[in-house]
Nucleic acid binder design. Structure first.
Lengths: 234, 234
DNA sequence: TGTACATCAGTGAACGCGCGTTCACTGATGTAC
DNA sequence: TGTACATCAGTGAACGCGCGTTCACTGATGTAC
């Protein structure tokens, strides 16, 4: 499996087929959702017999893992790029850009959103390989708040009462970022993150039905407000 | 199907069996998740042949609908009762009680949570019968904020810019409540709701793994902060 | 540059299992006179 | 109160379909001398 030589023709064809199988898988995901993802159906569409897929993925779960990693990388890239397009000191603009990137990605890839942030797939447990890709988008937010604190755009408030355990959780989180941010800001960042993902899931999973009609306007308004709270100027 | 007479022995047995089938379904849901819900497996466990279930539910989807309605009623009841246990003017206490009731219910019924608030079940579209039960929990929050506004515990802020469409969405929402609340408060109520449900889903679906260890303390802290923002004293 | 051997891709059949739904039927429970 | 008929619950077989995974095999592509 580990290729020490220059890639041969066979290697290249193999890499292409891995990508094609994933692409078909993604399409099936988009149409029928993760629980209905079928190796046989994918094989049929790829023009091979079902057992041939096992040359590329040792099991259905490994294919799902590959799709999950790709999806995390996809939303991670979208968020990183949206963030990078803004001037670094424009903290509020970056926050809004991140929000729009998350929602835009979700609307474009609803079933992948459900795969990542909806119900766990029955009989599937995510392996460690997914951890790093999963961290990309949240890391953008952490960098943003660190920048905001350094620039004085995000202010610390009188720290809310928190348990010693939560303080040490936050300390561990802070250790993974430079520059860093105080507990009260980390708490607000995670709160904003929960609100962002909660809002998108509400919209996507139909819980705003019969309540909101102007989804764009509603989201925009809510994320502006969330940005103000995040900044400590709520 | 509509019983105009006094319930006969047969009617009572039928009602019992409907309940037993739902109970088994709930247990299967809890163990394997909604997509794996199987009429045949339920029939086996109920000690009947698979076709016999069709005397009680005309299709798998109708059984799922029944389970969804029961789950909405279950969380709705939990929230209503938690709210009712607090003195009515204790707005912040009621908010926290609602939060704890939502999370407590979710932790006790993770797969039903996933059924209601996670990914949509493939091939299933919720019928109108689910709308009223689904509204019970959010209605508690709306009553709470209306009370809070009336008591001066929840204050209006300079209303954020919102589109005309969002304003009319809010007006429609306001029409369904008495007493009512201004746009800025409704917006904050929905934001708090999204944060609450986002936080619980994050915890339940594993997105706080390797970040938070003290889930109880973390949730408590976040919902206190959310309550302050909701009140307009963030 | 040519040959012998090893590696790999893909086939086709099979195993063993599951599912939702329909249908003709038996036997028990209810209803109307 | 008793009988004739209608309704309902549950059976058992079948239809038609799906799935993941394994395995022995063929034929093509690569590697080493």
């Amino acid at each position: 499996m580990d290729i020490a030589h220059a890639p041969t023709a066979r290697d290249r064809v193999r890499a292409e087929l891995v990508e094609e199988i994933k692409a078909i898988g993604r399409r099936h995901l988009a149409q029928h959702g993760a629980p209905a993802l079928s190796l046989r159906a994918i094989a049929r569409e790829a023009g091979m017999v079902s057992s041939a897929v096992y040359r590329y993925f040792p099991s259905r779960n490994e294919l799902i893992t590959a799709l999950i990693i790709d999806a995390y990388d996809s939303i991670g890239t979208a968020v990183e790029q949206a963030d990078a397009k803004r001037r670094r000191p424009d903290v509020n603009g970056r926050w809004l850009a991140i929000c729009r990137a998350v929602r835009g990605w979700a609307l474009a890839n609803p079933n992948e959103w459900a795969l990542l942030f909806g119900s766990p797939v029955p009989g599937y447990a995510a392996p460690i390989d997914t951890v790093d890709p999963a961290a990309r988008a949240p890391l953008v937010l952490l960098r943003l708040v660190a920048d905001g604190v350094a620039a004085g755009e995000i202010i610390e408030d009188r720290t809310a009462t928190m348990s010693r355990a939560v303080r040490s959780d936050f300390a561990a989180l802070r250790a993974s970022m430079r520059p860093s941010a105080p507990d009260s800001v980390l708490a607000r960042a995670l709160a904003a993150w929960a609100q962002l993902f909660g809002s998108v899931s509400f919209e996507l999973f139909g819980h705003l039905h019969n309540v909101i009609t102007d989804y764009d306007g509603y989201f925009e308004m809510q994320m502006r407000a969330a940005g103000a709270v995040l900044a400590g100027r709520g």
